[in-house]
Amino acid sequence: MFPKKYLLGALLAGAFVFSSCKKENPQPGDDGTPATGSLTVSLSTNVNGQPLVLGTQTYLNEAGDSFTVSMFRYYLTNIVLYRPDGSTYVEPESYRLISESQPGSLTFSINGVPPGDYSSMRFMIGVDSTRNVSGAQTGALDPANGMFWTWSTGYIHAKFEGTSPSSPGAGHMVAFHVGGFNGPHHGIRGVSTSFGTARASVSTTSTPTVFFDVNLAEWFKNPNTISFATEYNNTGVNPTNKMIADNYADMFTLNHIQN
């Protein structure tokens, strides 16, 4: 705590600085700043159409291996919203850690969006190279979240862990930690979704929700079929890392938009 002698000075001086304080929540329009709205994103995870349940529920991958899922997490970052005329809203500080074990992370709001009709959305799976080389980060990017390699510093963009009887690993474990932010095998992937003829109509009073289906099975197919008999544990930036990332690049599909 501050020593008493400074505290006294602080209180005395307070009167002079108080007036310079900014309002925390300015009301739209009342100080000349443009009024904004919000857009909600809701993610629903499935494995080839079956809802994802962590734990004992079993699924099949493309190679025919049965598997369970104990962990599914990824970074969803750098969101940009597009209007039909090509103008954009680039969300500042756009970093979210989506974690299947934390259902709250599957629905989130993008705030500060200028009112208007939006026709597509882009984002990244993974953390951009800049934040990988900028030192200590906080919030979603806090390395204490367990999505960071400390021996070869950089973010783990996405993690899948589970078991499969096909896996020769200890306890039949399967683990894929995808990382890397430069070089030929990095795991960052851009996702671009057009809303087709639909529009997400943002206004100061109405908040549209964009519903995405996230198909975990995509990690292990298209274009690269991954069999857990041979690939079951990969936690480095190598050709397998790239194969998984190439696969998961299309795990998002737009379901519908609710205005």
């Binding site: 006294l8 001086a13 600085v17 304080c21 925390e24």
Partner: peptide, 16 residues
């Protein structure tokens, strides 16, 4: 004390 006052004061007002 004066310097620190100016510096710490904003923290007594949540708006800052």
């Amino acid at each position: 004390a004066v310097i620190s006052a100016v510096i710490v004061t904003p923290f007594f007002f949540s708006g800052c």
